[in-house]
């Protein structure tokens, strides 16, 4: 039993509004799923960068309005209502959202949870300093009671206390003057890739020791830099005892090749979406979702298709 991915959608039409992109992906995802939208009990926005740097309301509520679900309360029936909110945790935002969605679905099997993610510069333009590719991604989660399909528990690991974050995005409003809605300052450590790789591999290897999977077919990983997931695969240090000492070596997804750069919070959803054609002809496939980002922190979870 566990949360399963009912449908995903990704839009990359080079629109530079996080709200527009994620809402478009959400609509596409719901339409493709064929479900009754009124059964989406929870909508989570797991993108980080916010159009105009808005702090209130939640971006999720603005996306919900564009998707047109649970718009108003009925005088006679609370069913069909939606609760929306933003989950923020760097590149681990979607995995954090999956963690909470899994509990929500386990407690109430009748509903769906829609997670939308993706980033765009707050200025809603193709800003040259923005280090991420603007895409919108959506993932519809459902609960499966009949099989062993779905997500296993998410493993989370932060760096050692007092370790500096390898990446930061902040805004000093006094410095931005009257341009506070359209600026963010990014700072990146030159050793970011190395720090992320080590933490990510540490988390994965500890997790695999606990979970002891017999096989992992694909790793769906963040790609803060091109080739990151390929390097990560070489650092996986686990073999199932029954497997005669052959270390697991899942295939990775080249997200930079597909999207032209780091798609940040959208990575786990987009990687799954890219993989869908491949999954169609397979009977049983095990995936490892893996993200790493500022903080520094890493999240990972096995997923059985």
């Amino acid at each position: 039993m566990g949360s399963i991915i009912r449908k995903t959608a990704v839009v990359e039409n080079k629109n530079f509004s996080a709200i527009e992109n994620t809402a478009t992906a959400g609509i596409k995802c719901i339409e493709a799923s064929g479900i009754d939208p009124s059964r989406i009990g929870v909508l989570i926005y797991a993108g980080l960068y916010r159009d105009d740097n808005i702090m209130e309301p939640s971006v999720a509520s603005l996306v919900q309005k564009k998707i047109q679900i649970g718009l108003d309360i009925s005088a006679s029936n609370l069913a069909g209502m939606t609760f929306s909110f933003d989950v923020i945790n760097g590149a681990n935002s979607v995995m954090s959202a999956i963690s909470v969605a899994d509990s929500i679905l386990q407690n109430d099997h009748k509903q769906f949870v829609l997670i939308v993610a993706g980033d765009a510069h707050p200025s809603k333009s193709d800003h040259k300093e923005f280090p991420f590719e603007a895409v919108g991604a959506a993932m519809l989660l459902d609960w499966d009671t009949d099989s062993l399909r779905g997500f296993h528990a998410v493993s989370y690991l932060s760096d050692h206390t007092n370790a500096e974050s390898s990446f930061s995005a902040t805004g000093k409003l006094e410095e931005f003057g009257m341009e506070g809605r359209s600026h963010v300052r990014f700072e990146s450590d030159p050793h970011l890739s190395e720090s992320y790789l080590h933490l990510n591999a540490e988390n994965i290897n500890q997790y695999l020791q606990r979970q002891r999977p017999k096989a992992i077919d694909f790793i769906l990983s963040s790609e803060p830099v091109r080739g990151f997931s390929q390097q990560l695969v070489t650092m996986i240090d686990f073999q199932h005892p029954a497997d005669g000492g052959v270390a697991l070596s899942p295939q990775s997804i080249d997200l930079h090749g597909h999207f032209g750069g780091d798609i940040h919070t959208a990575a786990p959803i987009a990687a799954f979406d890219v993989l869908i054609p491949e999954l169609k002809d397979r009977k049983k496939t095990t995936l490892l979702f893996s993200t790493v980002g500022s903080g520094n922190a890493s999240a990972c979870a096995l997923y059985c298709v």
């Binding site: 105009d52 309360i73 609760f83 929306s84 931005f176 009257m178």
Partner: peptide
Amino acid sequence: FTLAEFSEFCFGMPSN
């Protein structure tokens, strides 16, 4: 519950 029809009634954001 989020009554999203009314999500644009209040905005907190940097001043322009």
